[in-house]
Design a protein around this nucleic acid. Structure first.
Lengths: 402, 402
DNA sequence: GAGTACAGTATCAGCCTGATAGAAAACTCC
DNA sequence: GGAGTTTTCTATCAGGCTGATACTGTACTC
């Protein structure tokens, strides 16, 4: 923080800001004529025309037919289009790694799924395996993009763990056994592209915020129910990361007074009660067995509930109690407009969100809207693509200082 | 949201942004020469000189002697100074109303304390009394400012309740019996000045962030322990208000699983367990009596603890347990760098913060720094002054989008 | 087919920044 | 004490951007 802070502006900044304003209004309000853009942004016709020309040349805006004339010359409609630009995204997960080429519209145009390595979950060198896998996926994506004649412009990495965003370093990702892994700089050195690395719950929130169930919402919380539990937080339209990028790690939330006298080495209080790992453990303890001859999964428990199993129902209710407490506390702290339920258990949102709502009504002053993830398994990928795209668009906006 | 979004920029915006950059660097790094300002901001010497001239003329920057020469012409040091500009602030509380003239440096230069109205706490028309009181305080402050030859430039109002910030309307402030009271527009009509109305816990956080224990910190939480409990949240250097301005109303936090089967009409779960009201109620239930012949206060309980009362100590420990749970959950959700303890009970921070720390170590992954409020009773007033000052400075800054 | 209404384009003044050159102020050396 | 040196501050001007104005282009209507 000793160098120039570079929070200054010049004529070029003005241009970038206004281009961003035009892109924003096009993304939000569909195809518009130059006139309408001017009316909505407050920019003069000349400025809109010139900037729109630049954006057309860059390929970020395309013409989209004419508007029927209202007596005079019909206007040409302009539409935002990210199809001409691609970014590479890799989602490194505990069970598998997945890659995708995503355009600036958030559309996945190509996928890479490396074969699953048997036994990797408990392999001693799984950290190295996962890292190598991620590198080769990014290389493959880069080649696929080049083949299309649209070279990848940035890389996004989704990781289930704590990430130092500025450095692109994964501080701690237990599911991958990654500790202080500098994925960002490794990938930057390998590809020469700008790289963004981010926690996958945060990215799910970003993805849903920009392209999913949370579009247009300024304050939302995405609850990711998977092996563990985590949340991504968007406040004021921006991702909230916290001082050490550990915001939303609510697996460590304390659930009752007695939690203050217990110790939680390596795992959290809430995490041990909910999440598919906790769920299946408790299910086994209660004698619930999988229908087929294989380890019980969370999906099995949900199926049992749907089929009327009383034990499974009781277990679900107990889990929901804990999730509801966590969500209630999230809501009192953050006052979000929307709570999105996603992750591995997001598919069971029909069983989860009504249960949450019922528990919260009457207990907290205002129960926010609740929705299931609209992007499903791809939410984190889409979120990572969004951040990566922003990285290269390099636009800016001006904000008052309230 | 149908009008022009006005997120565009022009040459004037550039100037304002750069002026803000200069003020920022002056506030942060003390008196600087024009040269140093240029080096730190990246602005050219000519620009720094011209903008500094404008700021000198406005009185926001003053000269502050010379720097010893290093061989050539010695440079003139410039310093930020808010002394030439005043704002009026009124803190409307349950027990009393307090007014102050505050300069842009955050220094309180004049106070107005209207006489306490006996019995107002339970008067049927206390809403009207409090509003009239606030209006007359603001009028008096305006007169006092005019008398000094520095007319008040804006009004800040601190209220213990939920505030619709854009409208300056108090949605719900039980302590004042205010419901949908449009303080903002009333005061604007009365004074002709811009007005900002904000929740007092939020303002305490802002005050401590800009002028108190949280200077230089980007993510902090201020826990206000008073009649009830609330928190103010600063994320990324900005106040987080939530979608309905109810963020931080953690009095409604649910403390255990059984809370999900109880109802909380008009008060919250946590609130009923902590806060001076809950504390004294529980003290009475346990047979703790005030030393003198008057109603027991929270301060009395703290005194008893300091004097070695076992009952009072046990009660404090129980209260601390609940506060610690709330703070633990705040920390897992937000990952703040600093937790500030303030409010009526802030004076007993010596009893509170160590207790909190002990309870959290080992239970959550990272216990943030904790500090007592540095501004004490004036924190909310200073925070309101800060927001009011920003309102008229009307500066802006440019931000990248990610 | 002329007139009209609206969309898009060119031109220019005004503002701001940054570069360059020049004036001002203090120190040093003779 | 005065000239030279060093550094700071200021004036002037080119370049970029916006916004206003005037102009051209296109399709509909009478």
């Amino acid at each position: 923080m000793s160098g120039p802070t570079s929070s200054t502006a010049n004529a070029g900044t003005v241009s970038r800001v206004n281009q961003t304003a035009i892109l924003d209004v096009l993304r939000r309000h569909g195809p518009l004529s130059r006139q309408e853009i001017g009316a909505r942004t407050g920019l003069s016709a000349a400025t809109v025309n010139r900037l729109a020309g630049q954006l057309l040349r860059k390929g970020l805006v395309v013409t989209d037919g004419h508007q029927p004339s209202t007596g005079g010359r019909p206007s040409i409609l302009l539409r935002y289009s990210g199809r001409a630009h691609l970014v590479s995204v890799v989602h490194v997960g505990a069970t598998r790694t997945e890659g995708a080429l995503v355009d600036f519209d958030g559309t996945i145009v190509h996928r890479v799924r490396p074969p699953m390595v048997p036994g990797v979950l408990h392999a001693a060198d799984r950290a190295t395996i996962r890292l190598e896998e991620a590198l080769s996926v990014v290389t493959e994506l880069g080649a696929a993009a080049a083949e299309r004649g649209q070279p990848s412009q940035a890389v996004g990495v989704a990781v289930p763990g704590v990430v130092d965003g500025a450095e692109g370093r994964v501080t701690w990702a237990p599911a991958l056994d990654w500790r202080e892994v500098p994925v960002g700089s490794v990938l930057h050195d390998r590809t020469g592209l700008p790289v963004v690395v981010e926690n996958d719950a945060n990215l799910l929130a970003v993805g849903e915020h920009r392209r999913g169930a949370g579009q247009g919402v300024q304050d939302l919380v995405a609850v990711v129910l998977g092996t563990g539990i985590g949340v991504g937080i968007v406040t004021g339209g921006r991702l909230h990361r916290g001082s050490r990028a550990a915001a939303g790690e609510i697996g460590y939330m304390l659930m009752e007074r007695s939690s203050l006298t217990r110790f939680f080495p390596g795992f959290g209080d809430l995490e041990s009660r909910v999440g598919s790992a906790g769920l299946t453990r408790q299910a086994r303890e209660r004698g619930i067995v999988a229908p087929a001859d294989r380890p019980l999964t969370a999906a099995d428990v949900f199926d049992l509930v749907r089929n009327g199993s009383a034990e499974a129902r009781a277990l679900l209710e107990e889990t929901l109690d804990h999730v509801a407490l966590a969500v209630a506390n999230l809501c009192t702290v953050l006052d979000p407009e929307l709570v999105i339920v996603g992750g591995e258990m997001g598919g069971a949102a029909d069983l989860i969100t009504p249960g949450l709502r019922d528990r919260l009504v009457g207990r907290i002053p205002h129960v926010p809207r609740m929705a299931a993830s609209a992007l499903g398994d791809d939410a984190a990928i889409v979120g990572a693509a969004e951040l990566a795209a922003r990285l290269v668009s390099d636009f800016a906006y001006v904000q008052a200082t309230p």
